[in-house]
Simulated assay, not measured.
Amino acid sequence: MELLIVSLASLLAGLVDAIVGGGGLILLPALFATFPNAAPATLFGTNKSASIWGTAFAAVQYSRKVVMPWRSLLPAAGAGLVGSVIGAWGVTQVDPDLFRKALPIMLAILLVYTVVKKDMGRHHAPRFAGSQEAWVASSIGLTIGFYDGFFGPGTGSFLVFAYVRWMGYDFLNASASAKFINVATNFSALMLFAYQGHVWWHLALLMAISNIVGSLIGTRLALKHGSGFVRQVFILVVLALICKTAYDTWINA
């Protein structure tokens, strides 16, 4: 029964994550509910061991249908990897409690801005080109990569928003680019958890397969229905993140 629960949660998480990010909102609570006595680090590591595969498969699927800006995306992914490592080190030096308290407010601002700006992300009109685009994308990758390593919740949504707001991408292209950066940040976190022995490999394989299946379904839905659909899912996921993080921070603290 435990395997069935976490496998279904992993499938649904992969589906949501492939569209706009936020799969951890589904899979992590399922893991904590199913294994309440497990060390949190082990559940976080096991989550990463599954989600990285779904994100990677989604990235490959997007690259076959969407023109990927490789000249800016590869440096951004590299910067995300570096930022994630720095963030993971930073969390050992500084208490991330301030981030935890501020996160629901940050997400609420992001949500209101997206809802008010109804045309934002509906049309793909990149604002930068060449080396300038690479520098801007790398700055985004480094900053949000640091956040992912330091704290984590909502990383995919922040990446999508950054690409839409500052790079001028539509939601579909932003989601596609975000996947590659997210693979890099997830990889560094997974290596850290694995090195410390915080991964249940006997669950990881089955969860990874389920996550990939969900990811393939989510990617097809996003490619079929386009930016308008991705924008709607983005709003729903961010709203769910606000509710979850606000409850964890202010009510269930």
Results as ranks from 00 to 15, higher is better:
170 D>V: 05
228 G>S: 13
100 R>W: 07
197 G>T: 14
239 L>Y: 09
39 A>S: 06
154 G>P: 09
108 A>D: 03
223 L>K: 08
109 I>K: 01
177 S>G: 15
26 I>V: 12
253 A>Y: 00
85 V>E: 05
47 N>K: 00
230 V>T: 01
52 I>R: 06
20 V>G: 03
22 G>R: 00
246 A>C: 02
100 R>D: 03
88 A>Q: 04
248 D>K: 07
198 H>T: 00
24 G>D: 08
199 V>G: 06
241 L>T: 08
122 R>M: 15
45 G>W: 02
110 L>D: 08
121 G>C: 11
120 M>F: 04
28 L>M: 05
228 G>Y: 10
217 I>K: 04
178 A>D: 10
222 A>Q: 02
192 L>Y: 02
166 W>D: 10
251 I>A: 02
89 W>S: 14
191 M>T: 02
222 A>L: 11
186 N>C: 13
47 N>Y: 01
13 A>V: 08
72 S>L: 10
234 F>G: 07
161 F>L: 15
80 G>E: 12
53 W>C: 14
83 G>F: 11
56 A>D: 01
158 F>Q: 03
209 I>K: 03
212 I>Q: 10
29 P>W: 15
195 Y>R: 06
22 G>L: 08
189 A>V: 04
182 N>W: 00
38 A>D: 15
189 A>L: 13
223 L>W: 09
233 V>A: 00
95 D>L: 10
21 G>C: 10
162 A>G: 00
238 V>P: 00
129 A>W: 13
3 L>K: 12
200 W>R: 14
251 I>F: 13
172 L>G: 06
3 L>H: 05
144 I>A: 08
12 L>F: 15
8 L>Y: 06
184 A>R: 01
253 A>E: 12
220 R>C: 08
46 T>F: 12
123 H>I: 15
58 A>T: 08
157 S>Q: 13
27 L>I: 09
244 K>D: 12
137 A>N: 07
207 M>G: 03
229 F>M: 14
230 V>S: 12
189 A>D: 10
67 V>N: 11
63 S>W: 13
55 T>H: 00
5 I>N: 00
37 N>L: 13
221 L>W: 04
183 V>S: 05
73 L>G: 02
236 L>D: 01
177 S>I: 07
95 D>Q: 13
85 V>D: 08
5 I>R: 02
237 V>F: 08
123 H>R: 11
150 F>D: 13
98 L>R: 05
4 L>G: 03
17 D>K: 10
204 A>F: 05
12 L>C: 05
195 Y>L: 15
21 G>N: 09
178 A>Y: 07
244 K>Y: 14
174 A>D: 11
52 I>M: 09
181 I>P: 14
192 L>M: 11
216 L>I: 13
221 L>T: 03
78 G>M: 09
241 L>H: 01
33 A>T: 15
122 R>Y: 02
55 T>Q: 02
143 T>N: 03
